[in-house]
Design a protein around this nucleic acid. Structure first.
Lengths: 129, 129
DNA sequence: TATGCTGTTCTATTATTTATATAACAACTG
DNA sequence: CAGTTGTTATATAAATAATAGAACAGCATA
């Protein structure tokens, strides 16, 4: 699992970490039940604070992407790869909204939008940055 | 122009405002050269602070979606509806990334993703929330 | 049994961001 | 001249982000 954190990004580093773990899951690199490093080990590895890793973990737990078992460890959720619920779809749609508004101003048509989606899906699947 | 601000949203209200103005542009409701309310008038109308509206305006100016003319007023950018630059496309792609990672975990396929995009484009065009 | 690991909790500090509030300035408009 | 424009400055308050150190309870194992 290769994690690349950009300290100067506008995206908080706990979110960068959570998103890259989610990409690992999407890619199949992190299969359900796979253990993740302890908050201390991961923090030391990434050069960040234990509590920051903890925050990323809880963000992913909230999304039911990982399971935190107190005193045991952290694991990719047994059901991490699943069908989206109505709520999950609605959340993703709302996140899509501002990006699409900009895309419409910038005159991207149906095909170009589909092309961008395909490109990014490919990049996520390949693990490229 | 109907603006709906959710004060308890995780999205800062200056961003909500900026995004809804951009939707107005995308929808064609706010055509290029159209004047926007003054920071004071808009703030009073929306029940928020002048500086908050100002921050939304500068966010949109940074994106070249509006033009701020000191001592004159604020207008929809003459070139607000244009072709996306390489940088603009790259930015949108990066914004798409975390949403698509989640969508892959939640097993959305090409067709379902395209369907979500179409749905939200329709909602933006219709001005529905 | 003792050591070391796990996530959790608590307290604390620092910096940044968000939002509000006043006030004043310079320039344009009626 | 009066009113409006965006801008700038200062100030405060709250929330968020990130770090730090310490302690706790439970588990595994040597």
């Amino acid at each position: 699992m290769f994690i690349e954190i950009e300290p100067d990004s506008a995206v908080p580093i706990y979110l960068q970490l959570a998103q890259q773990i989610m990409e690992g899951i999407a890619r199949g690199e992190l299969a359900p039940e796979t253990p993740l490093p302890s908050v201390r080990a991961f923090a030391a590895d990434l050069g960040m604070n234990m509590h920051t890793v903890n925050k990323a973990y809880h963000y992913l737990e909230e999304k039911k992407m990982i399971e935190i078992v107190p005193k045991k460890g952290v694991f990719i959720h047994a059901n991490a790869i699943r069908s989206a619920s109505t709520e999950e779809k609605a959340r993703m749609e709302e996140e899509l909204r501002p990006i699409l508004a900009e895309a419409l101003c910038l005159q991207l048509n149906r095909e170009e939008l589909a092309g961008m989606v395909e490109k990014m899906v490919r990049e996520i699947r390949e693990g490229s940055e």
